[in-house]
Simulated scan of single mutants.
Amino acid sequence: MINILLSTDDNYVMPTGVLMTSICENTKSEVTFYIMTNADFKDESRSSLKRNIAKYNQNIVFIPVQPSATKDFPFGRPDQPTHVSVATYYRLLITNLLPKNVDKIIYLDGDMIVMDDIADYFNEDVDGYAVGAVIDQDMDENVKDERLEYPKQDGYFNAGSLLINLKYWREHHAYEEFIKVMHEKSNIIIFHDQDVLNYVFHDKKKWLSPRYNIQTEFLVAKKVARYGKELIKAIKNPLAIHFCMRGSKPWMIRCDNPFTEVWRKYKSISVWANSPLQNNVSGNLKNRIRIFLVKYHLWKETYYLTIPKIEEL
């Protein structure tokens, strides 16, 4: 049994469902999806996610989270990102929310797709570690001034894709540690639960291959040059693609990520096959210019243009 943890609200149902489709299409094993939602999650949304995976005979469990569970968490300050909801903190609650017999689980953000059997990821050995994780695309920026008050050589991971050792979390009272950090260090928490997870687990994580979390900027030429052969190998054999560029998502009309058409392939076999793409054409002028330059290969510092074309992967 492979356990997968997702989080969504009514506005993110379609992307979450497409992610689930990609997992079901590529995974041979039995899967249980645990889906954390806000307390007023609509019955219609719940029903659509169930219908979407019905043909795969996989399992789905919904876990409603009450507003009181996150009411005191650091959120909404001017120095914090505004494009996420307080639901991003749900991950920190899982030792209290998930069944006690679940000792290991994969967490994935909703703006991802899976392109290979997710058992490869689930079967990674994280005994003795709190999480298995991939470096964050902005790791250098997040550790350079030791903002989170731990040695910068410990690095900074992206929390959008995590192999979580729940047994370790319970045995080491991780939830209590999270609460303590958010109470005592709230002033240094900018990237919400991702900062909290890095603070608590900075020396308790296992670095995993980038193939488990190919973030958008990993496809940028300068990042490929920075991380070298391991990243090139991962790009050519990806398991999970993470569309983490704000304002450029594959369900939007304009998305310049090279894996956009792969995401749309999975949408076309989901229950949202006929749902229109969102209109982002009239968005930020700078972003529109960037997309135009990338499309016509005029901006050499954007995507790593020497990787195989998507149809060759």
Rank of each mutant, 00 (worst) to 15 (best):
V181G: 00
S161F: 00
A133E: 02
M182W: 06
H172C: 03
N158E: 12
L166H: 04
I113D: 02
Y121G: 06
Y121H: 10
F191E: 00
N158G: 13
N142E: 13
M115H: 12
D140R: 13
L148S: 09
F122C: 11
G160F: 05
I118T: 01
I113N: 10
M115G: 12
S186A: 13
R170T: 09
L108C: 07
I188F: 01
E146F: 07
N187M: 06
D154E: 11
K185I: 02
Y175A: 07
D145E: 13
E176G: 02
D116L: 03
Y175E: 13
K185C: 08
I179F: 00
S186H: 10
E171R: 02
N187F: 06
K180H: 14
Y121L: 07
N142S: 06
D111F: 03
I179K: 04
N187Q: 14
E171N: 09
V143R: 09
I164W: 01
G128E: 12
V143C: 09
K180Q: 14
N158I: 06
F122V: 10
Y121W: 13
M182H: 07
D120M: 00
E184N: 11
K144V: 12
D117W: 06
F191M: 05
S161H: 03
D138G: 14
D116A: 15
A130V: 00
Y156I: 04
F122K: 08
A119P: 10
H172S: 08
I164Q: 09
D120G: 08
M182I: 00
D117R: 02
K167W: 02
E149F: 07
E124F: 05
H183Q: 15
I188G: 09
E176D: 13
I113C: 10
Y150E: 06
D145K: 06
A130C: 07
I179N: 01
Y175P: 11
V143T: 14
A130K: 10
L108F: 10
K152A: 11
N123T: 10
G155C: 03
N142R: 15
V143F: 09
E149H: 12
I189Q: 11
A174C: 07
I189T: 02
Q137L: 00
A133G: 00
I118S: 07
N142F: 14
E177F: 02
A119C: 14
Y168K: 11
G132Y: 03
E176W: 02
V134I: 13
I190L: 06
A133I: 04
V131Q: 03
I189N: 03
A130S: 15
N187Y: 11
S186T: 00
G160W: 08
A130I: 03
M115Y: 10
V131T: 10
K144Y: 09
D111E: 13
D116E: 13
H183F: 12
D109C: 12
R170G: 08
G155S: 08
M182E: 02
V126H: 12
L148R: 12
I118Y: 05
I118C: 02
Y156C: 00
D136Y: 07
M139F: 14
K180C: 05
G155F: 07
D138K: 14
Q153Y: 15
D111V: 05
A119Y: 13
K152V: 06
Y175G: 05
N158C: 15
